[in-house]
Design a protein around this nucleic acid. Sequence first.
DNA 1: GACAAGGTAGACAGAGCTGTCTACAAGAGC
DNA 2: GCTCTTGTAGACAGCTCTGTCTACCTTGTC
Lengths: 193, 193
Amino acid sequence: MKPTFTAREQITDASSARERILYTAHDLFYQNGIKSTGIDKIISESRVTKTTFYRHFSSKDLLIDTYLEYRHEKWIAWFNESLSKHGSQLSALYPTLSDWFQSTNYRGCAFINGMGELNDNTTIINPITTQHKEAMLNSIKNLLNADRAATNIAQQIAMAVDGAIIKAQFDQCHQPALNILKQIINTLAPAET
Amino acid sequence: MKPTFTAREQITDASSARERILYTAHDLFYQNGIKSTGIDKIISESRVTKTTFYRHFSSKDLLIDTYLEYRHEKWIAWFNESLSKHGSQLSALYPTLSDWFQSTNYRGCAFINGMGELNDNTTIINPITTQHKEAMLNSIKNLLNADRAATNIAQQIAMAVDGAIIKAQFDQCHQPALNILKQIINTLAPAET
DNA sequence: GACAAGGTAGACAGAGCTGTCTACAAGAGC
DNA sequence: GCTCTTGTAGACAGCTCTGTCTACCTTGTC
């Protein structure tokens, strides 16, 4: 299952203006950065007028927040679904992350990237990043046998996964990051793999 | 040793205009993001005129590149010095990272953040990030006993360190990231700690 | 049939951005 | 003594950005 992380693929003739705006913003924000993406570009690429845009999103900050919430839900849903499809064992992490790292225009974690460029209090970037990483940790925890150490091991694995997300991003190549991650997890949780 | 990651502390009356510009840009770029920091703010805060600024840096992109190179050299020099002061063993990582994570206005890795917001070919962000992470890996490798597995283990530890850098950033707290990192490293390299 | 919701079309304001320009001054090195 | 470097001071051009405004249209619902 190749993940479709380009939201614009979902746009059809029946899509509302609000959907076209949000999906277009998602792709542009993720791909080029939030600060680098102007409202005018989103407006023209989503084929709405300025009036329509501001009717749905009263400010760019509101659009950013909506984008982050949408991205969070979409990503976690895909992550859980993919882990489940691959057997809901720890080993399901590798094909899942491999698919993501190889997806078109992969550019790392939207929330890590967002935290890097936004350092003001105008958006929800910090709370939603915490929420996102907690959800990811929880998904990983569910792959482990529930014993007293599971939370601890899951935290370690989640931290290593974040390292791998970053490495796949600057390597622009999925294989080294995945290989090193496998070695880490094989050592941290040898019984589970 | 508290690291002084605010470059402006170095500015004295004897500092040249170029130094004042670079150190001011360093602090503002790291703290508020590169895109969010305008030339005018750097100019006014470094107490030079626009003419002087453009005499030294013919464009903002050139200043960004200079900032990234300066940051890379400064950070790696500090990292190696701190590891050495703490005994050049793997355990030297913890006090070193602890100092960094607790430093004033800690906001993660300047290169990870930069990659998140810059996705164009106008700067050296991608090559210098690779270079930076290779240098960090090399410093970590030097802490290990040189046997055939050292490179491999060092890669795993470096990936976990990147995860910890990110976690300390969004937790806005150094302790959980450090504790989990310790657990990972204790498992990956039990003989060395 | 009235009305609300959602849409088109585009001018405009006001701010911020990068980068250029002219004119002048002080000190160091050849 | 002349020239080069480094600096001050600030106006200005030209662009992009977010957000507002007026005027008009279509469609579904009560």
